[in-house]
Write a protein that binds this DNA or RNA. Sequence first.
DNA 1: CTGTTAGCGCGTTCAT
DNA 2: ATGAACGCGCTAACAG
Lengths: 334, 334
Amino acid sequence: MTVTIYDVAREAGVSMATVSRVVNNNPNVKPQTRKKVYEAIERLGYRPNAVARGLASKKTTTVGVVIPDISNSIFAEVARGIEDIANMYHYNIILCNADKKKEKEIRVINTLLEKQVDGLLFMGGVVTEDHVQAFRTASVPIVLCATTDEHGIIPSVDIDHEAAAFDAVNTLIRHGHRDIAMISGTLQDPANGFARFQGYKRALEGAGVEYKEDLVRIGNYRYESGVEAMKYFLGLKKRPTAIFAATDEMAIGAIHCIQDAGLKVPDDFSVISVDNIRMASMVRPQLTTVAQPMYDIGAVAMRLLTKLMKKENVEHSRVILPHETILRLSVSEV
Amino acid sequence: MTVTIYDVAREAGVSMATVSRVVNNNPNVKPQTRKKVYEAIERLGYRPNAVARGLASKKTTTVGVVIPDISNSIFAEVARGIEDIANMYHYNIILCNADKKKEKEIRVINTLLEKQVDGLLFMGGVVTEDHVQAFRTASVPIVLCATTDEHGIIPSVDIDHEAAAFDAVNTLIRHGHRDIAMISGTLQDPANGFARFQGYKRALEGAGVEYKEDLVRIGNYRYESGVEAMKYFLGLKKRPTAIFAATDEMAIGAIHCIQDAGLKVPDDFSVISVDNIRMASMVRPQLTTVAQPMYDIGAVAMRLLTKLMKKENVEHSRVILPHETILRLSVSEV
DNA sequence: CTGTTAGCGCGTTCAT
DNA sequence: ATGAACGCGCTAACAG
């Protein structure tokens, strides 16, 4: 049924070892024989079996990617960066959604390892001791992508979320705002949640502004929660003049909430956030935000992983990519 | 180094066949022995090698997915549907971006086949003879996802693009519009391009409205091209009163172009499109559009593929999922 | 219920 | 430059 290397060998009148050499571009083959083999391959429609190859060589040229949710544009963008670089190095990607559920994450890490991936990319979730434990049992390199572990022992690529938030809030402060509310993510989340919240507090402190608890609402990163939070702020006796949202989506929710209440951005409220998703420049007013280089995070992480897989020694196994404030139209002087 | 089924067998004092049975949940094992084996597995930290398993069993419990671009929210949503169902049936996904480049598509189809995937999902590109040719050499089932082949010989899951466009334009007509412009995709693209354009023409015909070439612009599905097309319509001596865009993104571009020109939607122009991406309900005015069940397309396609892989016989190997017009706020009476 | 024995398709020495 | 033979880790008959 399926044509194997043996069939090709017979057809070409050589041994299977020679066919193997040809297929693997081993230079030790006479050009003439090489040609014969290629012809036999062509004639028979031979297709190398990557599974058998993987078993024999103990390499699968495949890397596993665990991702929170591929339908979330942020992660999709990172995934695209990963894929492009993987492609460049002739690796394939096994993609597993894990919905930021710890138990599911551990499970897919294990199935990925069973599949003998040559490396693992773990994306955007919280990294607990149990994760580190699972990683330890792996005999292949692992890099964290858009997240980091507490102890900083696992290679990772991410931005400095605290600093990004700090910069965002400072932009507001430089525009004269002092009553700045925040729509945060859950404080359980070390990166998008806690760190960004810390950046907010530090910026206030730096400006000598008192931190007020009722100017902070916790959302779930999504549009609707931005709307909800803004409704709350709108109901305050003393309203803030500016909103810092932990994500663009929540910021856009806030903007629409403001507009639906008959008020204006940035005239009545300035709004800033972190991420720079495509939609940020597709709303009116266009959103001022601190850009996170999503594609690059994926690309750099994958490149780092290839180095690790080749056992090259890398200088920095924890890389922090720069963020950048994109001034658009949702922030103005108070 | 790596612990194999032999090691477990020795440790548990049984044969490797028994270990294999335990690992594969074969009922023919005495509970007691089963327990011993499990303990040995635990003690040794044994992890089954899926590659070896794949070679021996000729099944990899992996399906290949070729996708145009994972960072495009439409495809990402379909991919999510695929993943969820795959997961449910314990399949993993190898994901390959192919950017709608034919040559790249053929290439990844072949590498996926080399990896011995148990099935293949081909998503959203044009299916040429060369594709069909590549599919033929495969010994595993294939289903097209969000696309179809001309001859309709390959199993597929999609919506009726022509009808969706027809419905969209008819919605406009029912609101009294007769001067309806279209922002189309390339007519080379049979589904999102040509079919939607045909639906537009058929709707006009049905209403006895003459088709005018200068009321149609070709875009590239993206926001910016919607802006460009709308600029053109704004420049017309006789402007249309309504815009039908082939995709939500282009529609949103058109809306912003209109608004940036100081005009209003839907007061000055009604706008409708096809897709229903998340952003459609996140812009002001919220976009009226014909929804395409993206998640379901992926889910149904994957479910169909599982049936094909199990060699169950399926009644309908070409499924058309229903679309639905979502009335929001971007369309009003003329 | 359990063990023995062949492969699965290919990479890789080691000879020649 | 080429071939013979072994083994990668596991499943799948077949015996018992």
